[in-house]
Computed example of a mutant assay.
Amino acid sequence: MKRTFYCAIPALMLAFGQQGLAGEVDSLCQDKVEAIQKQLRIAEEYGNEHRVRGLKKGLENVQRHCTNDSVIKDAEEDVSESMTEVKERQEALSEARSEGDSDDIRKLSKKLEEAVTELRERQDELESLQGEQ
């Protein structure tokens, strides 16, 4: 009987919202919970049962495992990945410049600008998360 009770808890939380859970979710995880709940409502409106099941499972995982530290760690990893991408784009652009291919230079310059913009956005997000903690 206990096992059934514990399995029913996530379903009850989904049915009654976050009122009972709000104090248990780390502050930075709350944004994740709210984003998933928004997607869940949309999927339910459109009758997309497969997506609903996946979102419910994702929501359950965030509620069980998300911590402020894990959110910040993920953001740090995103920044690191973006830095790597910027470095790779810079190297490709440098190579194109040495070859003198103006079309490649233009294309790679644009891709580098996009990668730098993404890096700045991710750095800003990380700083914001660290400030909220």
Rank of each mutant, 00 (worst) to 15 (best):
residue 83 M to L: 13
residue 54 G to E: 14
residue 23 G to P: 01
residue 76 E to G: 09
residue 104 D to P: 05
residue 11 A to I: 12
residue 39 Q to Y: 06
residue 98 S to L: 14
residue 41 R to V: 01
residue 27 S to Y: 06
residue 27 S to T: 10
residue 133 Q to I: 11
residue 67 T to S: 14
residue 58 G to Y: 00
residue 114 E to P: 08
residue 45 E to R: 01
residue 52 V to W: 04
residue 41 R to D: 00
residue 9 I to D: 01
residue 97 R to W: 06
residue 3 R to C: 02
residue 5 F to H: 13
residue 50 H to L: 08
residue 22 A to W: 07
residue 71 V to P: 01
residue 123 Q to N: 05
residue 15 A to C: 05
residue 89 R to V: 01
residue 74 D to G: 07
residue 132 E to H: 13
residue 14 L to N: 11
residue 64 R to Y: 06
residue 104 D to G: 00
residue 1 M to G: 15
residue 3 R to V: 09
residue 22 A to D: 11
residue 89 R to S: 03
residue 40 L to E: 00
residue 45 E to T: 06
residue 118 E to D: 14
residue 94 S to H: 10
residue 56 K to G: 00
residue 67 T to Y: 09
residue 116 V to H: 10
residue 47 G to N: 04
residue 18 Q to L: 04
residue 4 T to E: 14
residue 43 A to M: 04
residue 64 R to H: 12
residue 133 Q to P: 00
residue 38 K to I: 02
residue 35 A to P: 03
residue 68 N to C: 05
residue 101 D to N: 15
residue 49 E to A: 01
residue 23 G to N: 08
residue 109 S to I: 07
residue 92 A to D: 11
residue 24 E to G: 12
residue 114 E to N: 13
residue 76 E to T: 09
residue 12 L to M: 07
residue 8 A to I: 11
residue 33 V to W: 02
residue 79 V to P: 09
residue 125 E to I: 08
residue 19 Q to T: 07
residue 42 I to W: 06
residue 70 S to Q: 02
residue 69 D to P: 00
residue 69 D to M: 05
residue 85 E to H: 11
residue 22 A to F: 00
residue 21 L to I: 05
residue 67 T to E: 08
residue 59 L to C: 04
residue 60 E to W: 04
residue 52 V to C: 08
residue 70 S to T: 06
residue 53 R to K: 14
residue 101 D to P: 06
residue 27 S to H: 03
residue 90 Q to D: 14
residue 49 E to H: 02
residue 132 E to D: 15
residue 46 Y to Q: 04
residue 20 G to D: 07
residue 50 H to Q: 12
residue 122 R to F: 10
residue 10 P to L: 03
residue 34 E to S: 14
residue 32 K to W: 02
residue 132 E to A: 15
residue 104 D to W: 05
residue 45 E to W: 02
residue 133 Q to W: 05
residue 92 A to M: 14
residue 108 L to P: 02
residue 73 K to Y: 14
residue 79 V to C: 12
residue 63 Q to T: 00
residue 14 L to Q: 13
residue 108 L to C: 08
residue 5 F to M: 10
residue 38 K to Q: 09
residue 97 R to Y: 09
residue 107 K to N: 11
residue 121 E to I: 13
residue 77 E to Q: 13
residue 82 S to A: 15
residue 95 E to Q: 15
residue 101 D to V: 02
residue 109 S to Y: 04
residue 103 D to T: 05
residue 98 S to I: 08
residue 55 L to S: 02
residue 74 D to R: 06
residue 56 K to T: 05
residue 19 Q to S: 11
residue 78 D to Q: 08
residue 125 E to G: 11
residue 112 L to W: 12
residue 38 K to F: 08
residue 74 D to N: 04
residue 90 Q to T: 13
residue 127 E to C: 07
residue 123 Q to C: 07
residue 43 A to C: 09
residue 10 P to F: 02
residue 109 S to R: 10
residue 93 L to S: 13
residue 99 E to R: 15
residue 65 H to A: 11
residue 84 T to I: 09
residue 44 E to T: 10
residue 37 Q to I: 01
residue 122 R to N: 14
residue 29 C to S: 08
residue 39 Q to L: 04
residue 87 K to C: 07
residue 64 R to L: 13
residue 92 A to W: 00
residue 115 A to T: 10
residue 107 K to L: 09
residue 17 G to Q: 03
residue 82 S to L: 10
residue 105 I to S: 11
residue 86 V to T: 07
residue 110 K to D: 11
residue 8 A to C: 13
residue 36 I to E: 00
residue 97 R to N: 11
residue 131 G to L: 04
residue 7 C to P: 00
